[in-house]
Design a protein around this nucleic acid. Sequence first.
DNA 1: ATCGGGTATGATATACTGTTACGTTTTCTG
DNA 2: CAGAAAACGTAACAGTATATCATACCCGAT
Lengths: 161, 161
Amino acid sequence: MAEPARTISVEWGSLERRVRSALIGHGSELTPLRLRVLRALFDAHQPVGAYDLSERVGGEVGGRRIAANSIYRILLLFTELGVVRRVESRNAYVVARDGDAGSDVFFLCDGCGAVTAIDQPQLAALLTIQASALGFHPHHQVVEVAGQCRSCAKTLTKDQS
Amino acid sequence: MAEPARTISVEWGSLERRVRSALIGHGSELTPLRLRVLRALFDAHQPVGAYDLSERVGGEVGGRRIAANSIYRILLLFTELGVVRRVESRNAYVVARDGDAGSDVFFLCDGCGAVTAIDQPQLAALLTIQASALGFHPHHQVVEVAGQCRSCAKTLTKDQS
DNA sequence: ATCGGGTATGATATACTGTTACGTTTTCTG
DNA sequence: CAGAAAACGTAACAGTATATCATACCCGAT
């Protein structure tokens, strides 16, 4: 098993500021629970499921369990604000890159679970063109590629030799 | 609500032949249950969940319920053979277009549920290039666009006027 | 101060999705 | 026919998501 690579480049400080202002602009605020959820997601550096997140957040506070419910509500809020993205092929969630307009491509490593998010405007453009040709009005896109990251691929090759 | 559009262009006869030979090449066969699952999926003309499928297939035979288990096994087999694709953002399954090499783009209508699958080699190429640049070895890609199809978009516009 | 409203969270239940383990039936084949 | 392998069933369970109702808290108006 290769070591998880840190792949989503987000600074905690700027993330917190960004989320706080997004929430305020939305008429809400960055409550302690929301902050803890955001932090747990940030610390994971990879997609985390809602229930896993619930345990992580609860664990911080002396094992007190957080209602799955609340986690989902917070995840919904965060995704609506664009600060968190759902990884469809994993049923999990990650912190969005700063500047991610919702058209990022996710490269997901089966080995270490790391996710690399990149902006790919040409790809988004292709999809838009294709959609127009179909008379289709897109409002959300999912582009996810599963495979092995560089280090996991190396490890695998050695193992097989 | 607009009428569901028929979007996946597959002829039943050729589909059955294709699946049968794929199964035989795999050392299996097209059993009655597998045939009924395939048919139900074909008739739906849109993504269908596993449990929904279970009911549809069971309903044909006097309400006898088909084990979710068997449905999943068959779906797994079909997806391995490439005759069925999983729609990640819907937790559902559709018959693959003939010639779909696994790199199709799905346009999913939120209104009528219809799915339009198209081949988009340029897009696959873009993803491959990007993967190489990252040292990433892809083995599976998911490209799904949610939105409104032509007719549902029209209906919506009228409703709003 | 307290009443009322809104926001946030909890508690509980339930639905939906997917997997595992094991047993039975069928079919093929020697 | 015996044995093996494939196909399917049954049951239990794990994981993911939502619905509903109750509660805590803040804050402004009375």
